[in-house]
Computed example of a mutant assay.
Amino acid sequence: MSSEFDDVLSANERYAEQFDLGGLKPVAARGIAIVTCMDSRIEPLDMLGLKPGDAKILRNAGARVTEDTLRTLVLSVYLLEVQRVLVLPHTRCKMASVDSDEAVHDAIYQTYGVDTRSLEFRTNNDQIGALRHDLERIRHHPLLPSGLPVMGAIYDVDTGKVSAVDG
């Protein structure tokens, strides 16, 4: 076992001693799926008044609606009682602060010598435009129910406030 993970394994031992979430059903008790960023400043359950078991949380860099996000939403709707979707990117997101995927590829290559051009990072410095595009991807996906409630919002990492976005 690697000592690089001793801190998290020790923390898990303490967590498991007080664990009280056993028996939760695998469905979204409040019927919501949240697509948000992997940024560690985001606590999606707390900030929306939810608790474990209430929602399905889908996280990726930039809170983008990727093919994998759509696949997971299809499963969530039909098998896990999701009845609505909130797409929730945030302020000061690295993925929304660069001009293009090419800039990210170049930065990684220049700093680490790793060619990442086989990956699509989905950067977009028009965060609201990207959010609206992603909302439409969900609304018009042929395998998701017509009329599925879908909403976009931006989470402010400096104030904790969530602001709805039309789209």
Score class of each variant (00 low, 15 high):
R139K: 15
R132L: 04
I57N: 13
D68M: 12
S118P: 00
L119A: 11
T66S: 13
E120L: 11
F19C: 04
P44S: 04
F19K: 04
V87A: 05
F19Y: 15
R30L: 10
A130P: 00
R132I: 12
L50G: 07
Y109K: 11
I138D: 08
V35N: 01
Q83Y: 03
R132D: 00
A28Q: 11
L119W: 13
A33Y: 01
Y109A: 01
V104M: 13
H140I: 02
P89W: 02
C37D: 06
H140T: 14
Q83C: 01
L119C: 05
Q110K: 13
C93S: 06
D134Q: 03
R117G: 06
L58F: 14
G53Y: 11
H90D: 08
L24P: 04
V27C: 09
T66D: 06
D106M: 10
R71G: 11
M47H: 00
G113C: 09
I128S: 01
T36D: 10
D134L: 02
V114N: 03
S118V: 07
Y109V: 00
A61Q: 04
R84Q: 14
S97H: 03
G49T: 07
L80I: 03
E120S: 14
G23Y: 07
D99V: 02
K94D: 13
L135T: 03
E120P: 01
S40C: 12
Y78D: 02
K51N: 10
V98Q: 12
R59C: 13
D106A: 14
L73C: 09
I34G: 05
R132W: 02
V114C: 01
D46V: 04
E67S: 14
L48R: 12
T123V: 14
L79H: 12
V74G: 11
S97M: 12
E67F: 02
L45K: 03
D134K: 06
D54V: 05
G31N: 04
L70N: 02
